[in-house]
């Protein structure tokens, strides 16, 4: 009886220890998020002003803003998403609608998953090799292409997943009405999967707008305002990288402000994307 009790106490104690550890692990995870966001807001609010959105990046020791990198980021992200999204949606359509059971689909799905988690700096090297080196100079266009390569796997994945969720009955019904397959995909499947597909695009935007590594040697950076796609273009992440590692106080302050802008843009996008899928799941 005594040994049974001792065993029971030991099991209870071990259980208690693990549960306490699991509780504190969660606290650490959440605390870390709070610390990072808190530090970001704290540091950035000291430098936040209207000038950030109206003035160019300054030379060291002067005041200025982040207008050119913000515009550059917007241009390159928009263009990257505009190039990558159609390719991604079309490829996802093939995988879910035409070749659902074909071998190509299996291979593409596997490769796509690899591309999804491949190091983004590799994409930068790739675009450097095939675009920047032949052209002979860095350009905003090369940066957009690098971002497009990152957009494609995200969109392929969500498009396929969402189209697979569309009930087969809908397809059967429209086929029975004599609708051609392409028309059915456009008017029935895309419409049924729209919310999910938009979520995918939003996630892709969120993913690429914070990317730095693929821009470093494709779009490079630009101290001045430029909307010329054929010239080096500034982007928020690249400017943060440059300014944060500089020894100048003003630059470091601007880097924090830029970091805040990016983080909130990205987090807002992912929250919107989540809300879209959540409302869809409920309805």
């Amino acid at each position: 009886m005594a040994t049974a009790n001792a065993l029971y106490t030991r099991r209870r104690r071990r259980n208690g220890i693990v549960l306490a550890l699991s509780f504190s692990a969660t606290a650490i995870g959440l605390g870390w998020l709070a610390i990072i966001l808190g530090a970001l807001v704290w540091e950035a609010f000291q430098g936040l002003s209207l000038k950030v959105f109206t003035e160019m990046t300054p030379p060291p020791g002067a005041e200025g803003g982040l207008l050119n990198p913000i515009v550059g980021s917007l241009i390159m992200t928009t263009l990257g998403v505009a190039i990558g999204t159609p390719i991604g949606i079309l490829a996802g359509t093939y995988m879910a609608e035409y070749g659902r059971y074909s071998h190509i689909t299996k291979v593409v799905r596997f490769i796509n998953d690899i591309l999804l988690s491949a190091p983004s700096i590799i994409i930068g090297l790739f675009i450097y090799e095939v675009v920047v080196a032949p052209m002979g100079h860095f350009s905003g266009f090369a940066g957009s292409l690098a971002l497009a390569v990152l957009v494609i796997p995200v969109v392929v994945r969500t498009t396929e997943d969402m189209l697979l969720l569309v009930p087969t009955e809908l397809r059967e019904a429209s086929t029975a009405l004599g609708t051609p397959r392409a028309k059915m995909i456009w008017n029935v499947c895309y419409r049924a999967a729209r919310a999910g597909m938009i979520t995918g695009v939003l996630l892709a935007v969120a993913r690429v707008s914070g990317e730095t590594a693929p821009l470093l040697f494709t779009a490079l950076n630009n101290q001045f305002f430029s909307a010329d796609l054929n010239a080096p273009m500034a982007s928020l992440p690249a400017v943060i990288f440059q300014f944060a590692l500089s020894p100048y106080q003003d630059w470091q302050k601007l880097a924090w402000v830029g970091a805040l802008i990016i983080t909130f843009a990205v987090l807002a996008l992912s929250v919107i994307a989540r809300a879209l899928t959540a409302s869809r799941a409920q309805s």
Partner: peptide
């Protein structure tokens, strides 16, 4: 969701922090 937000923060933010 909060834990997954950690994945949403761009890596450059982790760098500067």
């Amino acid at each position: 969701i909060a834990i997954e937000l950690l994945a949403g923060i761009p890596s450059i933010i982790y760098g500067i922090w």
